[in-house]
Amino acid sequence: MISLLQEAATTVVEQSQGAAAASEHGGATAQAAAAAGEASAPGMPQLNFDTFPNQIFWLAISLVVLYWVLSKIALPRIAAVISDRQGAITGDLMAAEEFKQRAKDAEAAYDKALAEARGEAGKIVAANRAEIQKELDAAIAHADAEIAARVSESEKRIREIRDSAQADARQVAREVTAQLVETFGGQVDQGAVDQAVDNRMERALQ
């Protein structure tokens, strides 16, 4: 491996230096180049154990710094933000739920009030109707009574009129009868005349 490398290095150096270069000078440079080639040997730099302490040291520092930054600043902050947001969302949802409930309550109260008002109105209407009916009844009764009173009064007057008419008729009949009897030259017996007129009228009135 290394001899191959040396060969390669020599070739490269010879090419670059040209044929005119002194042989011992070229050889020295070739040796230097070979040494350099050995240091950066083609192969996996991952397996170059010389660099391990360096990488591990810086890795440790990076991880400690990163762990500190994340655990002390970033992660608590993000957790707080996320829980704040969750809280805000939950709060909003609960508020919305509450408003909804309130709206429902308001609707129920409205419905109740409406039903109550309807009932009240019905009651008032019924009460009014009853009152009016009562008044009406009273008025009708009053009117009936008045009518009855008037009727009886009228009947009384009619009777009076009739009675007086009867009495008048009787008087007239008696006077006429007495006159007739006098005219025909009879002796007026007031008692008999009255009797006869009364009999006649009695029959006429029946």
């Binding site: 730099p45 991952q46 397996l47 660099t51 391990f52 990488q55 591990i56 890795l59 440790a60």
Partner: peptide, 8 residues
């Protein structure tokens, strides 16, 4: 890409 790092 280094096993030194991932190994740690």
């Amino acid at each position: 890409s280094h096993v030194a790092v991932t190994g740690v």
